[in-house]
Amino acid sequence: MEISKFINELQSSINFYGIIFYALALLIVVSGLVTILANKLMHSAVALLFCFFGVAGIYAMLAADFIAVTQIMVYIGGILTLIIFGVMLTTRMTEANERTAVLDSTKTAIGALISACSGIGLVLVFLLGDWKQVPLEELPESTLQDIGNLLFTNYIAAFIAAAILLLVAFIGAALIARRKN
């Protein structure tokens, strides 16, 4: 097709993939910064929404479809909703100006040290790690079957342990929430 050839040439000159990657990276970095720097707790929570969303986008670009959807499901649908509920329940409900606390200098120093260490560790892993590069053509069409197979063969012990943990958490929640007579 004439039109499709023209558009494809245009696309290869722009490198659409790169644009999406840098847009997502910018979204993650900016919303991550807002999460830790915002004054209001609720603003942090909402910035976290966009941070999680950007990470899900990166997963989708890496052809990890299942992990991308799970990221949205678990982090946005579960954890973020829980965080916002927590914010709304623990502070006075209609108080719009609940501010995040400012830590004293010792705690800030310890926090900075831990973040710097983990940052250096991540960079080292990136530089020295034994990465395998798979060409785009050899990518599996779906990661779903492989994840399922591994989960029920090699990692069955971890899977069952997680199931037991969830069951205990369920029972614990029911026990705490039960009406005391």
Binding site: M42, D65, V69, I76, T81, I84, F85
Partner: peptide, 20 residues
């Protein structure tokens, strides 16, 4: 490949949006 799971997962945005 995870179509139904995806359609179910993105409904979370509605919940968060309503709370916001």
């Amino acid at each position: 490949n995870v179509g139904i799971f995806y359609a179910f997962a993105v409904s979370a945005f509605g919940v968060v949006g309503i709370i916001i």
